[in-house]
Simulated scan of single mutants.
Amino acid sequence: MDNSLDQSGSKAFFLDRDGVINIDHGYVYKIEDFEFIPGVFEACKIISQAGFKIVVVTNQAGIGRGYYTEQQFNELTSWMVEQFEQQGVAISEVRFCPHHAESGIGRYKQECFHRKPNPGMLLTAAKNLNICLEQSVLVGDKYSDMFAGANAGVEALFYVTEAELEVKKSDFFIRCQSLHEAVTLFFD
């Protein structure tokens, strides 16, 4: 792949949070429950050194369901970003969607263009940061991540799964076992 920056905009790695950056323990919102996946900092250093921005895009239906608040999410997010900074990695933006059409409560019970598989979070980040989506990469651990990337026009999609990997490439995404492996495959 030609991974050099083009002049029409910067490139980004869009990363889902739970299952890509941290172990998905289900509705993680406390620092003491946040466990970075091994190799995540090293992978993000490679991404940054290659000139890509790092953007976190995460559905947070736990907010919509009333399990935790936006303030609690923001406090954890600030801490997470600081951990990356301490490792010499800049997170350009964190986008989240707290809505859930079926299980949300109050103002959070709604269809939302930003909730993956919809592309809203990626499109907003691309506009804010002048990102060329076609030259960018998305790494996620759910099909909704893959569809959000495809719906936004991201061509390099990596699906993180612990399942045995017989066939790495599907019709429109590549299976891998971690962010670190996705980065290795992309830059190989």
Results as ranks from 00 to 15, higher is better:
K53P: 11
I37R: 02
A61Q: 14
A43Q: 06
L138V: 11
Y29G: 01
E102H: 05
Q135F: 02
I105R: 10
L133F: 05
Q49P: 07
Y27D: 13
E32P: 03
C176M: 01
V154K: 06
G104R: 06
R65I: 01
S178M: 02
V40E: 00
I105K: 15
L179E: 04
I31K: 15
S8Y: 15
G120C: 04
D2S: 13
N74Y: 12
D2P: 13
S48G: 15
A43F: 13
D6P: 09
D6G: 04
G104S: 08
L133A: 01
L123A: 06
A126K: 13
F96M: 14
C132P: 03
K53N: 15
R65E: 13
E164G: 07
V183C: 09
Q72N: 00
Q72T: 06
G149K: 02
C44N: 15
R95T: 03
G88T: 07
N74G: 04
M80S: 15
F147Q: 14
I105E: 14
A90M: 08
D171R: 05
E32I: 05
A152P: 11
F172Q: 07
K127A: 13
H100I: 05
E85D: 12
L5P: 01
E42V: 10
G9L: 03
S8V: 13
L15V: 02
R17Y: 05
P117R: 03
S8M: 06
E75W: 06
I21H: 12
I174L: 06
S4F: 08
Y27N: 08
S178D: 00
E155W: 09
E42P: 08
E32C: 00
I54C: 05
S78C: 08
F14I: 02
G106C: 05
I46E: 11
I131L: 03
F13G: 12
M121T: 09
Q86D: 14
A182E: 00
F41Q: 08
H100P: 09
Q83R: 09
Q60K: 01
I31L: 03
Y29R: 01
A156Y: 12
F158Y: 13
I105P: 12
I54P: 07
V167I: 11
I37A: 01
I174Y: 01
V183G: 05
R17A: 10
Q7P: 05
I37T: 00
S4M: 14
G66K: 09
V56A: 00
L185F: 11
S136M: 00
F84I: 01
